[in-house]
């Protein structure tokens, strides 16, 4: 189908964007359009105003700051994938992005758009949760920093206010040599994931885990850190991991049921996929000599 009628706005600067967001009712921001345009074509959404932010050039780009790596909200997924900084410092994000859509959708789709849309199976907000990202948001009262743990407010619902826009995502990279792993199940490569998991670990000279991040996504309405299992992994030798607490916590999630799979099968997948992700993290971890 075709999108319903709307008023089209194309701000050139952040100031123009803020002014539009403050003055318009029932407005939607158009970023890469790879979720919003299908939803409009399918008439799931019918905003009165569409604010196209593709011409605000300083919302895109990747840079290293003292506080971490800042990825502009309008940075295309293809550009994140080919970024040398991201490849070297945040390899987990690269692993995940290889599963996001196809070359045509990654050429347009943006990391900020995905983090505002918050599809439960979306890889990018999920990796932000695994990486303890911060979201830099601008609104009428100025700029605020939202920790990712406060960003998810439910299905397709972020903490972004109606008059706010997402500027950038800030990620503090883990130390070089950390282990990272990613696994997801989808019917076909590039399709929406039915469920997925991600793991990051760090180990000391004695080969025991000193830091761990474990995450399941596509299982509940929002990505879920497996925080009990993260604690349980600390101090464990990576050659003899007891993964029981990890799988148990993943399998106890409040899984969604839909036309594709039952809640029980999704819980099963959550356990399998976090195990695979953790196994991969153990193999990518650079061992101390």
């Amino acid at each position: 189908m075709k999108a319903p009628p709307f008023q089209y706005h194309r701000p050139q600067t952040r100031e123009e964007l803020s002014a539009l967001l403050s003055s318009l009712e029932n407005a939607k921001i158009l970023a890469g359009g790879q979720s919003l345009m299908p939803m409009m074509n399918l008439r799931v959404l019918a905003p009165e105003h569409l604010i196209d932010i593709n011409r605000i050039s300083d919302l895109a780009g990747i840079r290293e700051t003292a506080d971490g790596i800042e990825i502009g909200a309008m940075t295309r997924q293809a550009d994140v994938l080919s970024s040398d900084i991201v490849k070297a410092r945040i390899p987990l994000l690269i692993r995940a992005l290889e599963h996001v859509g196809h070359i045509q959708t990654r050429a347009r789709g943006t990391i900020g758009g995905s983090c505002c849309h918050l599809d439960p199976s979306a890889e990018q907000p999920a990796m932000c949760a695994a990486l303890d990202a911060e979201l830099i948001v601008t609104g009428p009262e100025g700029r605020r920093i939202v920790p990712i743990s406060e960003w998810f407010e439910g299905l397709l619902q972020s903490a972004l206010g109606e008059q706010e826009f997402l500027e950038a995502i800030r990620i503090k990279p883990w130390a070089k040599g950390h282990g990272y792993g990613f696994a997801e199940y989808a019917r076909r490569h590039g399709d929406f994931a039915v469920a997925g998991g991600a793991a990051m670990i760090k180990a000391g000279n004695d080969g025991r885990i000193t830091r761990a991040a474990l995450l399941s996504f596509g299982v509940e309405a929002s990505p879920r850190r497996l925080s009990d299992a993260e604690v349980a992994l600390i101090g464990q030798p990576i050659d003899k991991l007891d993964i029981e607490p990890v799988v148990t916590e993943a399998r106890a999630l409040d899984a969604m049921e839909d036309v594709h799979v039952t809640a029980g099968y999704r819980r099963h997948l959550a356990g399998v996929l976090i195990r695979r992700a953790l196994h991969e993290a153990c193999t990518t971890l650079e061992r101390q000599p």
Binding site: M1, K2, Y8, R10, L30, G33, Q34, M37, P38, N41, L42, D52, N54, A78, H102, I103, Q104, T105, A107, R108
Partner: peptide, 26 residues
């Protein structure tokens, strides 16, 4: 017309994109 089939792919500014998910005015 919802970005799944790829039949409408054209090249915009050097990149292959789905022409059903871009507005003409863009």
């Amino acid at each position: 017309e919802h970005g799944v089939c790829g039949a409408c792919t054209v090249i915009v500014d050097g990149s292959p994109v789905r022409s059903c998910l871009m507005l003409a005015v863009q």
